[in-house]
């Protein structure tokens, strides 16, 4: 993330301090603590009074994307965020969220609990990027509540993985709701646990989970993905791992659960290594081994 991103952001938190918020007639992004005090109705979404985090409320349609940034730039900072986002009926927005540490050696800890409520007919495209140092730790729990006729496209990207990361993304879908969860994770010297769950509760709902996991330099990745079909619905899991070296491990567990006979849920999962043929090919194009691996990995993560 560069300074342009920080400047353009609508919500900026550095360590524990909120540096920037945004509000106009249509959109509000303030601290979760302030939301708890000001809007009684938000309390049902929080498990306890929040101390940190943002509250995003999109009341009317806006024609610009929203940006949030949560940064650690002081040593041994522990962030405990409770985020809440509410999209009113029929709203269609894009959100870009960044969570990161500014430099190596901060030993930061970032914990985030989030709830995203998509009211009837609304649509959210959310690109959530994480970039950390191997000394940092991250834990997040996000729940997306999709009311009728809503649409979620969530992309979680962890390009510079922290030393330890524990992620859970869960979506609950009502009638005619659709959801795509994509996880793009590149681990180096990292222990990663990721759990993506889609619960198809409503008729004609549909969900897809796509995971692309890269393990290198003594990384361990435990990835679980689950689709639960409880009403007539459709779902698909597509989980692929790529082991770049011998020192890494990937465990991939796709799980399907179906309690409605009219549902159709499917999965595909694989773990592979870098193809020697691809590597040879790119080297005959003038790329050295490192550049060739980097290109193949970037391509693999490009979903």
């Amino acid at each position: 993330m560069d300074m342009t991103d920080v400047k353009n952001t609508h919500y900026l938190q550095i360590n524990h301090k909120i540096e920037k918020t945004f509000s106009n007639e249509d959109v509000l992004i303030i601290s979760s603590t302030e939301a708890w005090e000001k809007f009684n109705w938000t309390r049902k979404y929080f498990s306890k009074k929040p101390r940190q985090g943002y509250f995003l409320w999109v009341k009317k349609q806006v024609n610009f994307p929203l940006f949030s940034c949560v940064l650690i730039n002081s040593k041994k900072t522990t962030q405990d965020l409770q985020n809440l986002a509410v999209l009113e009926k029929g709203i269609d927005i894009s959100l870009f969220g960044s969570c990161l540490s500014s430099k190596p050696g901060l030993y930061g800890s970032h914990n985030a609990y989030g709830k995203f409520v998509l009211k009837e007919g609304s649509s959210l495209k959310y690109e959530h990027r994480h970039s950390w140092d191997t000394n940092d730790k991250v834990k997040t729990r996000y729940t997306f509540i999709l009311e009728e006729n809503t649409k979620l496209n969530y992309i979680f990207k962890s390009i510079n993985a922290p030393g330890k990361m524990d992620i859970e993304n869960k979506a609950e879908l009502s009638d005619n709701a659709s959801c795509e969860i994509k996880a793009v994770i590149d681990c180096k010297n990292s222990e990663m646990r990721i759990n993506d769950i889609i619960e198809l509760k409503g008729k004609q709902s549909s969900g897809q989970i796509q995971m692309r996991l890269v393990g290198r330099e003594k990384s361990i990745i435990y990835a679980n993905s689950e689709i639960l079909a409880k009403a007539q619905s459709k779902g698909h899991l597509d989980c692929q791992g790529l082991l770049v070296d011998e020192s890494s491990k990937i465990s991939l567990v796709p799980r399907l659960f179906c309690s409605n006979k009219k549902s159709q849920i499917t999965h595909e999962a694989s773990i592979g290594k870098i193809s020697q043929e691809q590597l040879s090919y790119l080297r005959t194009r003038g790329l050295n081994e490192k550049q060739a691996i980097s290109l193949i990995v970037n391509g693999f993560l490009n979903i």
């Binding site: 043929e277 005959t284 003038g286 391509g299």
Partner: peptide, 21 residues
Amino acid sequence: EKRVKLGIVLSWQNPPAIKGV
């Protein structure tokens, strides 16, 4: 890759696919 720098280049008979690139 060093041969390519010298100017030696091969056109593959069955070049492999590189997904995502």
